[in-house]
């Protein structure tokens, strides 16, 4: 078995990316992907705890949270969801091009992804700016302009905005980290680094991370922006 595997590994000139501890590329790639998913599962649990807190308090203060959520701009949320879904597509295309070893395909798709990520952050900036302007951030000054609370009890509305800023802020941080990692990946492709050109896995793993960021937003958008009236 080992002899066959080493034939696979070294018999042809195409497995430069194979590390010595793996029998073949299939096993190596599988290890990387399972490893990445292990990280993503910790992220799922991390965000999951916040979704748990959200579920608990929203069920307690349904009407107040509904009133507080009216301060959010649904159009902006929709635009951001479109942008993230589209960027997931471009990342998936980048992975496809990486598998086909097409440098310019990868670079152009990752560049579009970066533009989408930037657009997402710009929209988020304007949203946050508006909320800060209306004193809707948790803290001593919260609710000093009651007209923006839409009739919600300040305590409960503050809890909602605490989670709004906490969850979307953490998500935004993930978008920022994604932009940095994608930028690094682009630099590697630009310089024809064998790390990415001989092995599509680094591009795939960055792609998995980016899809996860999209995944979190898929749940954040309806929960934060589109609450049904209780």
């Amino acid at each position: 078995m080992a002899a066959i595997a080493s034939d696979h590994g070294h018999g042809h000139g195409h497995d430069e990316a194979l590390h010595h501890q793996f029998e073949n590329m299939e096993q190596q790639n599988d290890s990387y992907i399972v490893g990445m998913w292990t990280f993503l599962v910790t992220e799922v649990m991390f965000f999951g705890a916040l979704f748990l807190i959200y579920t608990l308090y929203r069920s307690m203060y349904q009407m107040d949270w509904y009133l507080a959520h009216e301060a959010l701009n649904v159009q902006m949320g929709m635009v951001n969801t479109f942008v993230l879904l589209f960027s997931s597509f471009t990342v998936a295309m980048a992975v496809r091009y990486a598998q086909l070893q097409k440098k310019w395909g990868v670079l152009s798709m990752l560049a579009i992804t970066q533009v989408c990520a930037g657009a997402f952050m710009v929209v988020k900036y304007f949203e946050y700016q508006e909320k800060f302007g209306h004193h809707l951030y948790p803290g001593p000054g919260f609710g000093s302009h009651p007209e923006y609370l839409h009739g919600a009890t300040p305590n409960f509305a503050q809890l909602y905005f605490g989670l709004y800023f906490g969850m979307t802020g953490l998500h935004g941080l993930h978008v920022l980290v994604g932009m940095i990692v994608i930028g690094y990946l682009m630099a590697k492709w630009w310089r024809n680094s064998p790390m990415v050109t001989k092995d599509y896995i680094p591009t795939e793993l960055v792609g998995l991370y980016w899809h996860f960021v999209d995944l979190v937003w898929i749940f954040l958008f309806p929960l934060m922006y589109l609450m049904p009236k209780p």
Partner: peptide, 20 residues
Amino acid sequence: LSSDSKHGGHSHVQPVWLLF
């Protein structure tokens, strides 16, 4: 496996129509 290895191991290249 050899033909797959051309793309860096056992990987499935997803068709564009599926992604789009």
